[in-house]
Each structure stands twice: as C-alpha cells, then as structure tokens.
Amino acid sequence: MDLARSVALEIDLEAELVAAYPLLARRLTVVLRDADEAQDMAQSAFARALERRNQFHGGDARAWLYTIGIRLALNELRRRKRLVALPDDGEPAWAIASEPDLWAALAQLDPQQRAALVLHILDGYTHAEIAEMLDARTGTVSSWISRGKERLRGLLGDD
C-alpha cells in the first residue's frame, strides 16, 4: 500500500505551512526590505519546516513557520552586517504606491524591531509569543515594540 498517499496526517501540517507561506513572505519583506529576498528566505524556511516536521508537536503551525523564517532572516542580516553593508537598491514601486512614508520610516528601525512590530500589529501575536519566536525575553520584545512605535510616531509625524 502506498502509505505516503494514504496517510494524510502530514498533509494537514503541510497544508497549514502552505497557507502560512505567503504571510511569512510578506512579513519577511518588511524585515528584510526586499520582496525577492524575502521570498527566497520564506522558501528556505518552508523547506526547513518540512525537513523538521517531526519536531512540530502541534499548535500554531504559522507561528512555527514564522519562527524558522524570521530567525533565518535575522541571522542572515547579522551575518551580512559582519561582512559588508549592501548598497540600497532604491525603494520598491509597490511600497511607493502604498505607504511610502511608513516604508521609509521602517528602514530606520532595527530588523528585530521591524519583526516584532509586524508580528504584533499584523498578526496580533502577544509580546510573550513574539519573544518565543525571536528567542528573546518578553521584556526585550516589549521594549522593541514600544520604542519602535515611538520612533515611527516621530518619523511619521503622527500625534
């Protein structure tokens, strides 16, 4: 019997990962500030999640994929910082056409702050949940979010 076909349990997780994948790619676009790079990173995270599916013990598959993807992205940014700063290729048209000021303001934040903000604002994850995803203390995440918002408030001139 073709057990791979017949056993559909794994499809549940895989389907959840497929559903979460575009969301991860969007979040990584904000963190990495590059949609193409974000997609590559999301694909790497997706592949890694499938390889490590036996480490998933149930719960929020999207958060699990986010954890893998955002950690990969932050590690990549740290590695890159150690090597050489890449030149800015300019702002993407889609960002200019939608929220250019916010996009520009987000560039002034640390990647961890961007990650914490998008996870909190767009996905509604709590500070504690984000702390677990980013392997940081809850207080640190609270600080990232609080300071990130204040920075954005100043940069956006929104009182």
Partner: peptide
Amino acid sequence: FQRLDAAIPEPAVP
C-alpha cells in the same frame, strides 16, 4: 501596516 502589507507582491507558491 495593513495597506503596506496588501501592496506587497504576491509570492509564488512554495
């Protein structure tokens, strides 16, 4: 954030 998010190009299927 939601407007910016909505403008991000749709990624290809993994």
